[in-house]
Computed example of a mutant assay.
Amino acid sequence: MPAISTAQCYANAAAFKGRTVVITGAGSGFGRATAIDFAKNGARVVLGDVDAKGMGETVAQIERVHGSNAVVSRHCDVTSWDDQVALFAAGAKAFGSIDIVLPNAGINEIGRFDPREDGDATKLTKPNLKTLDVDLTGVLYTTRIALWYFINDKRSDPGLRAIIFTGSMSTFYGSEGVMYGAAKAGILGIQKGIDKVCRELNVRVGTICPYFSKTAILTSDFVHPVPKLGYAKVEDVVAAFVAAITDTDPKTNFGCYLIPDQWGVYRMNSQGQFVGAEGARRSREEMKALMSKGKL
């Protein structure tokens, strides 16, 4: 039984109505799923991705139900500052404001950090930093631009605003992929670093941390290391995003939402403590031990 139910996650979903949401990596996976769900709940979505075909499919699904006035999209390589600036500008021009930002675009590990596994080990070569560029530098760009829009928002009462990051269980427990693990751990560094400015601006901040989920980031030959856990359900991940953005409890601000298995969402407060009926009895150490043994 999850620590926070789907009904609890969506309890305040009406708050999306009229909000403008920027989502990077919206052409597939969590980006597509959140875009569709947020639009269903009344949000106007601003979508960016390098995958034109995938993003076109996301846009088409939204337009079929909600019309073209609910969505704006642009090609966006998150490693390009100019692409990201243009994405936000397109959203602001179309909808007049930026309210919620999901720096979601990400890729899996590219290359190998171990010199024995990445080319000729007799030659000294630089590591491939592409994963770090997308999964961390791109997130820093998105966050910086979001803060600029929030700081310069001239509305007397801008209402609900949020920056919600896409982390991973690797955010806490590391990864065999050095660059991927470093990037996802770095998300918490960003979250902590923007604490002061976001509290001053009344911006909610959080990180969503799924374990393995059946999205395009998993290759066809992927083998789950702990099969008993199953896969984090995309709908649970989306529900966690909704909760992180709309929860009115200040104690959940700057927290994390973990989806470590097929059984739902666990909420962690800003002090790193699990909260909720089931999560309250779970420490980080216990969570890690249970994951490693496949008993979660």
Rank of each mutant, 00 (worst) to 15 (best):
E200C: 03
V238D: 05
S213K: 06
T207E: 06
G193Y: 07
A182L: 13
Y231M: 05
A239H: 05
P227Q: 07
Y231L: 07
D195C: 11
D249M: 10
A244I: 02
A239P: 02
L201G: 01
A185C: 13
H224T: 01
A183K: 10
G189N: 09
D236Q: 04
Y211I: 02
V223I: 09
P227C: 06
V197D: 11
G230A: 01
N253W: 14
I217E: 08
F212C: 02
A240L: 03
L258K: 08
E235D: 15
S213H: 13
T252G: 06
T207G: 04
Y180G: 00
F212V: 01
S220Q: 14
K192E: 10
Q191L: 12
P210W: 13
Q191S: 09
D249G: 02
V178F: 15
R199D: 04
T207K: 02
C209E: 08
H224V: 00
A239G: 10
A232E: 08
V197A: 12
V178T: 15
T246F: 00
C198T: 15
T207I: 12
V205M: 01
T207Q: 02
V238F: 07
T219R: 15
V205A: 01
D221F: 07
P227K: 08
A183C: 05
K192P: 00
D249P: 00
G230F: 04
A182Q: 09
F212M: 07
T219W: 11
L188S: 09
T246A: 00
L218V: 09
I194Y: 02
V178H: 14
V203L: 02
G174M: 09
E176D: 10
C198M: 02
L258S: 06
I217R: 10
Q191K: 13
K214H: 13
E235T: 12
K228A: 15
V205K: 04
G206V: 03
T215V: 07
V197M: 09
T252D: 04
A182M: 15
S213C: 09
F254N: 09
K214N: 13
K228Q: 14
V226W: 14
A243D: 08
G186N: 04
K233C: 04
K184T: 01
A243I: 03
N253Y: 12
A185D: 12
V178S: 11
T219L: 11
V238A: 03
D247G: 03
D195F: 13
L201H: 08
T246E: 01
C256G: 07
V197P: 00
V242F: 11
G193V: 05
G174Y: 12
S175W: 05
S220F: 06
V205Q: 03
E235Q: 14
I245P: 03
C198N: 07
M179C: 12
K192T: 09
L218W: 07
G174H: 10
V205P: 00
K233P: 02
I190D: 04
A239M: 07
N253L: 02
F254Q: 06
L201E: 04
D221Q: 09
K233V: 06
V238H: 08
K192Y: 08
